[in-house]
């Protein structure tokens, strides 16, 4: 195999760690991409970012108590992120602070606390792994976690699609017909689970990258909700695959390269969507008429 084909395929054929990384990033993309669309539509992008940072202190506590095990760090991260997501929401509702300020406050505290906790017992390498992830070293347990979270996410989105859409579109309607708070809690739990899974792969600083950037890029195309969800998953998959290949061939750190690939798709959509999306096609028809 030569040329482009070899560039695209050989790293995955030759190296098991690249196949595992591809599987992890693909699973992450399928769950986190569509979930990111809901996050964007609910104007909760900053919430996603803050919650991702909140995984760190929880994972650090798990690390301090039980060492670098997936169960301890994953459980700690999940609980800490859930706590921050709910607490910041309560602060925003009960005080004069708006949601952006309360989430910014919580995420700064969480990040500083997490770095401090890791530095108590860990080395610089541990800290870098937690901050930027270890996608090329993802083990069986990590892969299983990411795949389980992705499966759960896709299943919940499929089954609970209608109430989740209604809660985004018209939360008052759902409250009137019972259970608005429950659906929101389910959504937050899914968000946190995906961020914990992404944390294993991309680290606390980049975890939200594969969730937000593909979703924001997909929204720019002004499609219906179903198509936007599919496009976000597609963009996340493409960014994951491209980022892995570029990082492999250019010897670059994988996590940031994947997020930059998603960033490229976002910038490309910013430029192309107005020309090729529904508005652009309409403009073209007017010009031809």
């Amino acid at each position: 195999m030569t040329g482009l084909g070899a560039w695209l395929v050989e790293p995955f054929v030759e190296f098991a760690f690249m196949r595992r990384a591809l599987a992890a990033v693909a699973a992450l993309a399928l769950g986190a991409g569509p979930l990111g669309v809901f996050l964007v539509l609910r104007r909760m992008s900053l919430v996603g970012d803050a919650t991702a940072h909140a995984v760190l202190p929880g994972a650090a506590v798990g690390f301090l108590v039980a060492g670098p095990t997936l169960v301890a760090m994953g459980t700690g991260g999940f609980l800490a992120a859930l706590l921050v997501a709910l607490a910041a929401g309560v602060v925003a509702r009960r005080t004069v602070l708006r949601e952006d300020a309360s989430f910014a406050a919580f995420y700064l505290i969480a990040l500083a606390l997490g770095v401090l906790l890791v530095s108590l017992r860990g080395s610089q390498v541990d800290l870098m792994h937690l901050l930027f992830g270890t996608i090329l070293a993802v083990d069986d347990a990590g892969l299983l976690l990411v795949a389980t979270v992705a499966t759960l996410t896709v299943a919940v989105l499929a089954v609970c699609y209608r109430p989740l859409v209604v809660e985004t579109l018209d939360p008052g309607f759902l409250r009137l017909h019972g259970g608005g708070g429950g659906w929101h809690l389910l959504f937050v739990a899914l968000l946190v689970a995906n961020l914990v899974a992404a944390f294993q792969v991309l680290g606390t600083l980049m975890a939200v990258g594969l969730m937000m950037l593909p979703a924001a890029a997909a929204r720019l195309w002004r499609l219906g909700l179903g198509a936007t969800l599919a496009l976000a998953a597609g963009f996340a998959l493409a960014a994951g695959g491209a980022g892995l290949l570029i990082s492999f061939h250019r010897d670059l750190p994988s996590g940031p390269t994947i997020v930059l690939a998603a960033g490229f798709l976002y910038l490309a959509s910013l430029l192309a969507a107005p020309l090729l999306g529904p508005e652009g096609r309409l403009r073209l028809r007017h010009r031809e008429a």
Binding site: L41, C160, V165, V166, L169, D170, F173, G224
Partner: peptide, 30 residues
Amino acid sequence: YLPQQSALSADVPVTVEDLVALGAWSRTGP
């Protein structure tokens, strides 16, 4: 209950049909 328009996130990309069909919620359930 018909809310004020500001209570509706009209930028959520759903169709008119999807919105109106919510009126059958008490019969279809979630």
